[in-house]
Design a protein around this nucleic acid. Structure first.
Lengths: 349, 349
DNA sequence: ATGAAAGCGCTAACAT
DNA sequence: ATGTTAGCGCTTTCAT
C-alpha cells in the first residue's frame, strides 16, 4: 500500500532506475549491473533493459550515484586570470582531457586574489570534487587542500616549501633558449622585460638570463631589465625609455605574455619595427586571437602537454592512489619573423 | 551493536552531520536546522553546534544535500570558443555572478562543434545542473534541453524558431552606431569586414549597415564587404586587396572580434596606419590582453551586463519558476584613437 | 543469472 | 524547542 506522504525532491517527472527495472520486468540490481557492466547479465535481459531505457528516456542520476560511490567524477580547475590567453588555452585543454576520461570540470577564476582563491577551494571542497588542478596564488590555500587530503596538481607556479605534485615548464632552460638564439644572431645589448618578480616563473626565467651571461663571462646589465608586472603600462613606458637610449638595444626579450604585449606596444610607440629595427623574442603561448604562431619568435609553453600531464597525474592520485612525481616539461623555441641579426651586421654603420 | 558489514563510500575520515550532532549532544535534525536556519533553535544549542563544527572540521556534504533537495546549486556554462576574448570574459563574469548567488559553475567549450555541444549538454543534464547558460551552436541541442525542461538562457546567438529566454545585444543598432560615427566624420567609402554569414549576429550587423546606407539614399557597395569567417586569413587577405584599390576606402568597419584582428593585420601588411591613413572601427569587447580600452573606436558588447542578466534570468526560472522575457541590451560606442576624418578633409589632396 | 535490501549523508514532515 | 525517521536514487553485499 502506498502512503507517499513525503515528496521532497522537486523531481518532477524524472524517470528512475526503478522505473526502468519495472518496465523491463526485472530488479533494480540487475538493471544497474546491466548498465554498468558490473556483473554478468543474460543478453536478452540486457537488451530489455536498454530498450526500457530508450523508451522511458532514462538518463541516470549522477548525484545519487556519487553519494553511493563516494566519487563525483568532477574535477576542479582554478586559474588566476582567465583573460590571459595562457589560462584560456589551459582551461580549454584541461576540460577536454577531463571529459575524455569521463570527468566533468568545475571552473573558477581566482583573479590573482588569495581570498577569492580561498572561497573557491572551500566551495570545490564542499562540492566534493575528486581533485583539483590549481594555478596557485597563495601558499596557504595549497596547504588547506593538502590538509584535507584533496588530490591536487599545481600548474604554472609552485612553492618551494609545499610538497604537492606539480606540472611546470623548465623556465630556466626556456630563458636560456631565447637568450642563446639572440646571442647567436649577434645581439649583445638585449633589453629584458619580465613579469611580477615574486612569481617563481619570473625568478627562474631571469635566473636563466643571468646565468647565460655568466656562462659567456659577461655581466648582466641590470639597467637593461624592466619589470612589466602583470597589468598597467609600466613595461611599455619603461621600454620606450630604453629604446630611446644610445646606443639602442638591438633586441628585446619579453619573458611573459604580458611582457610581450608591453614590448609590442612599446615598439609601436617608438615607431620601431621588428626585425629590421630591433629583434623581438617572446615567451608564452601562441593563439589565433593573441599572437599567431610563427609571427613572433617565441619560447612556447607547451600548454597541451601541461594540461594533459596535469589531468594525468591528478587522476593517478584519484584513481590509483599513487604517489606521483612532479613533471617538468621542456619549452620549445619557435623561430618566427620577429628576430634576425642586429642591424649593425647588415647595412648601415 | 555495530555490524558495519558495508563500507561503500571511500569516505575516509569524513566527518558527518551525525558526528556534529553527537558532539553537540543533540539530534541531527536540530543540527541541520541550526546550520541552515530553517527553524528556530535555542541560541545556546546553536552555539554548541557551531563549536562542534569547528572542532571536528565539518564541512557539509553537498552531494547528499543535493540528492535530498533535488537541487545541485550548480549551473552550466557552454561557450563556443574559450580562446575568443569575448567568451573568456563572459566565462569570468558568469562565474562571478553565479558564485555571488551561491552557485558553482560547470564549464565547457563546444569548439563550435554541434557534436561536442551535444555531449556537453547531455553530460550537464545527467549531472543535474540547475540550469545552463548556453552560447549555442546547433538549434537541435537547444531543443534537446527544452524537451528535458532544463532551465536555459541563450547568449550571443539565438534561433528564430526556438522559444527560449535569451540575452543578446542589439546588433542592428550597434552596427548603425558605428556607421553613423564614420559617416558623420565624412567617410563615404567604408570597407566592411564581418564574421560567419550564417550567424544571427553577423546577419543583424550587416543588416544594420545596409539600412544605414538606405536611410541616406545610398547604395551599399557589396564589393566593399569582406567575409572574414571565424578563422583563417581570408579577412586579412581580402582587406589587403581592398586597401590597394584606387580610390582607397577611407575607413574600415570590422564587425566582430575576429574581423577586427583581420583588419589590424591587413592594415599592418598594407603599411597603413590609423587614423592617419585610414580610420578603423571595431565591434566586440575590450580587454587588456586583446584590445585595450580606448585604443580603438569600438562598439562594445556589454559583457558584464550580458553575464549578469543571463544569470539573473536563468535563476528566475530555476528559483521562482517564472517565465522570463528575453533581454536585448544596447551596445555602446566608445570613441578611441583609431578613427578620425578622412584624409581628404585634412592636408593632402 | 538474478533479487532483496542496506545504506551513502542529508532534509523535512510528523512527532512531542 | 527538539527528536525520530522516511526516503532522495543509486550501488553493492549477501543470498538464492
Amino acid at each position: 500500500m502506498s502512503r507517499s506522504r513525503r515528496r521532497p525532491a522537486a523531481s518532477g517527472t524524472s524517470v528512475t532506475l526503478k522505473d526502468v527495472a519495472n518496465r523491463a520486468g526485472i530488479s533494480v540490481a540487475t538493471a544497474s549491473h546491466a548498465i554498468n557492466g558490473t556483473r554478468k547479465v543474460k543478453d536478452e535481459t540486457r537488451d530489455d533493459v536498454f530498450a526500457a531505457i530508450k523508451e522511458l528516456g532514462y538518463s541516470g542520476h549522477s548525484i545519487a550515484r556519487s553519494l553511493r560511490r563516494g566519487r563525483t567524477a568532477m574535477l576542479g580547475l582554478v586559474v588566476s586570470d582567465i583573460e590571459n590567453p595562457f589560462f584560456a588555452m589551459l582551461a580549454s585543454h584541461v576540460q577536454r582531457a577531463a571529459a575524455a576520461r569521463g570527468y566533468q570540470l568545475i571552473f573558477a577564476n581566482s583573479e590573482e586574489r588569495a581570498d577569492r582563491e580561498r572561497e573557491i577551494v572551500e566551495a570545490m571542497s564542499a562540492q566534493r570534487v575528486d581533485g583539483i588542478v590549481l594555478a596557485p596564488v597563495a601558499e596557504q590555500n595549497v596547504e588547506f587542500l593538502s590538509m584535507r587530503r584533496m588530490p591536487l596538481t599545481l600548474v604554472n607556479r609552485r612553492f618551494p616549501n609545499v610538497v604537492s605534485p606539480y606540472v611546470v615548464v623548465d623556465d630556466f632552460a626556456g630563458a636560456s633558449l631565447a637568450f642563446d638564439h639572440l646571442w647567436n644572431l649577434g645581439h649583445r645589448t638585449i633589453a629584458i622585460i619580465h613579469g611580477d618578480e615574486h612569481q617563481s616563473t619570473t625568478i627562474s626565467r631571469v635566473a636563466g638570463i643571468r646565468e647565460s651571461y655568466q656562462r659567456r663571462a659577461h655581466v648582466f646589465d641590470e639597467t637593461l631589465s624592466i619589470n612589466a608586472g602583470r597589468s598597467g603600462d609600466a613595461g611599455e613606458t619603461g621600454l620606450v625609455a630604453l629604446l630611446a637610449r644610445i646606443p639602442r638595444p638591438t633586441a628585446i626579450l619579453a619573458l611573459s605574455n604580458w611582457s610581450l604585449l608591453a614590448a609590442i606596444r612599446g615598439m609601436h610607440r617608438s615607431l620601431l619595427r621588428c626585425p629590421d629595427d630591433v629583434s623581438l623574442v617572446g615567451y608564452g603561448v601562441t593563439s589565433p586571437y593573441w599572437v599567431p604562431a610563427a609571427a613572433i619568435t617565441m619560447v612556447e609553453q607547451p600548454v597541451t602537454d601541461i594540461a594533459n600531464n596535469a589531468v594525468q597525474i591528478l587522476l593517478d592520485q584519484v584513481e590509483k592512489n599513487v604517489t606521483v612525481e612532479p613533471v617538468v616539461l621542456r619549452p620549445l623555441l619557435t623561430v618566427g619573423q620577429s628576430s634576425g641579426p642586429p642591424a649593425i651586421y647588415r647595412a648601415e654603420p
